[in-house]
Amino acid sequence: MKRRKFIERSLVMLAQFGVMGGIFRRAKAELKDYDPSKHYYGMGIQINKCIGCGKCVEACKAENGVPKEPFFFRTWVERYVIKKDNGVTVQSIDPRIERSYEAFAEKDILRSFFVPKLCNQCENPPCVQVCPVGATFKTADGVILVDADRCIGCRYCIQACPYGARYLNPETETADKCTFCYHRITKGLLPACVEVCPTQARIFGDVKSNASPLARFKRMNKIHVLKPSLNTEPKVTYSDLDGEVR
């Protein structure tokens, strides 16, 4: 009798330990000891590697619950076709809406390429400057976030963003934008767009780090940012950026 009870108790205790251990492990895996002051995030984009497949756009919408309609994007891919008569045609590639890319006669094309775009997570973000209620702000690790509980939906930030990176989420009626997948990067994962990019056109990392793919990207390439004259100091940098890209 005693023995049976002992075994019973041990089993229960064991089970309890197991559950607790599980919880502990899970908690450790999810929260970790994330210290935002130890990071400062940026992204490098190699235009010469982008094949314009649109996987990043798809993954971003799936990961972040971005409305499916083609008017709301946290990231998108532009296709530039510069023709020999110097005419420039730009399209936003949406693999779900229009799989066919506009066709050009090969002999008319001077050069052509794809450019992925997203929130530049500016060092001097104009959107943060203009928000009347302080509902958008820069975190210690350099990401611009929106407080959807306090955003009043005045859309001043959308007007102030030079890159068209913000949209008004039709479900919440608040401003929304790329967060570098903040919920992923704080767990040590890559942003969804970087994760799925088949050609590593996007390189995510810590701008402070000296030994990382991002550091290598900056060492090996001539890099540039979008609209440098506006002094927003983007943390999204491009290599092989063509002058026609705006």
Partner: peptide
């Protein structure tokens, strides 16, 4: 506004760099 009911926020936490605030 998308959220007129939150307009009081402009007095609670005004962002002093914002012209609109």
């Amino acid at each position: 506004l998308g959220h007129p009911e939150r307009s009081y926020e402009i007095f609670l936490t005004p962002n002093f760099t914002s012209a609109m605030a």
